[in-house]
Simulated scan of single mutants.
Amino acid sequence: MVTAADPGATRTSVWLVARPAPSGRRRVEAPSGLDRDRITTATVRLLDADGLTRFAMWRLAGLGVTAMALYWYVDTKHELLELALDRALGESALPAGQPASGVAGWPGGLKELARGYRQVLVDHPWVAPLSAAYPNIGPHARAFDAALQQLMDATGLVGAARTGAHLAVRQFLHGCGGGVRRAPEGDFCMALDVLIAGIEAKAANS
């Protein structure tokens, strides 16, 4: 069983570990037809089918990946879960282009970002607990953070007001979007409108 944080284990993020290029012998001996991308895809499918609590590396054998073959590409199950987490986050729709400043631009972008993130949590219920357990510094997570930062910049808020708005959005996404008792879509959208109205009011009075 995989828990949010295994006690007694000190882990380093898969995104911070430099994996040496395989030697000629390892390239020859490595299982054919496999790579990190295919293994990550299989892991996402398994998590979707069985859930996080039943996840075990040996279960990937049912998807055509043997446990022993995995260790050519990842060292631990935690590396595999981090890869799967970032792969799922890559499905989140990000606003296209630089958000326009003022009320005419960023609210629509924030709605798009928030609804896209919620959809990822709906499609992959295991993403929410993994997001709380791992540092979320993969390429897709960083792209999401960059998009949110751009939207916050476009509000015109600065200092403590901007920090507060950013925190409110983050807490909203993880609370209403990914909580154990996830808010229905209609309630989520209504709450999102209220949140955006509050940010707009704060920006107008700044």
Rank of each mutant, 00 (worst) to 15 (best):
A5D: 11
D6C: 10
G8Y: 09
T10I: 13
T10D: 12
R11K: 11
V14A: 15
W15H: 09
A18N: 15
P20V: 11
P20A: 15
S23W: 05
G24M: 11
G24E: 12
G24A: 14
R26W: 09
A30L: 04
A30I: 03
P31R: 01
S32A: 14
S32L: 10
S32R: 14
G33Y: 06
D35P: 04
R36I: 11
D37Y: 13
R38S: 12
I39K: 03
T40I: 06
T40A: 10
T43A: 08
V44M: 07
L46V: 02
L47Y: 01
A49S: 12
L52Q: 01
L52H: 00
L52I: 02
R54I: 01
F55A: 01
F55D: 00
M57W: 00
L60G: 00
L60S: 00
L60R: 00
L63K: 01
G64E: 02
M68E: 14
A69S: 10
Y71K: 07
Y71M: 06
W72L: 02
W72C: 05
T76H: 06
K77P: 00
E79M: 06
L85S: 00
E91C: 10
S92F: 07
P95Y: 11
P95E: 07
P99Y: 05
S101Q: 15
G105A: 05
W106D: 03
G108L: 06
G109R: 04
G109T: 04
K111F: 12
K111M: 13
R115H: 10
G116V: 05
Y117N: 08
Y117V: 08
Y117D: 06
Q119G: 03
L121R: 03
V122K: 02
D123K: 10
W126Y: 05
W126L: 02
L130Y: 02
S131V: 03
A132Y: 07
A133L: 04
N136E: 10
N136F: 05
I137W: 06
P139L: 07
P139F: 08
A141F: 04
R142V: 12
R142W: 09
A146W: 13
A147C: 12
L148T: 15
Q149K: 15
Q149F: 15
Q150L: 13
Q150M: 14
L151T: 13
M152Y: 14
A154S: 09
T155V: 11
T155K: 08
T155Y: 08
G156V: 04
G156C: 08
G156T: 04
L157V: 04
V158K: 14
G159I: 05
A161S: 10
T163I: 13
T163V: 15
G164I: 10
H166W: 15
H166I: 14
A168K: 13
V169L: 15
R170G: 14
L173R: 04
C176M: 13
C176I: 06
C176F: 11
G177Y: 01
G178A: 01
G179C: 02
G179N: 04
R182T: 01
A183I: 00
E185K: 03
D187W: 07
F188Y: 06
C189Y: 07
A191G: 11
A191P: 03
A191Q: 10
L192P: 03
L192E: 03
V194I: 15
L195E: 05
L195D: 06
I196T: 06
A197S: 13
G198H: 11
I199R: 04
A204T: 09
A204L: 08
N205H: 13
S206K: 05
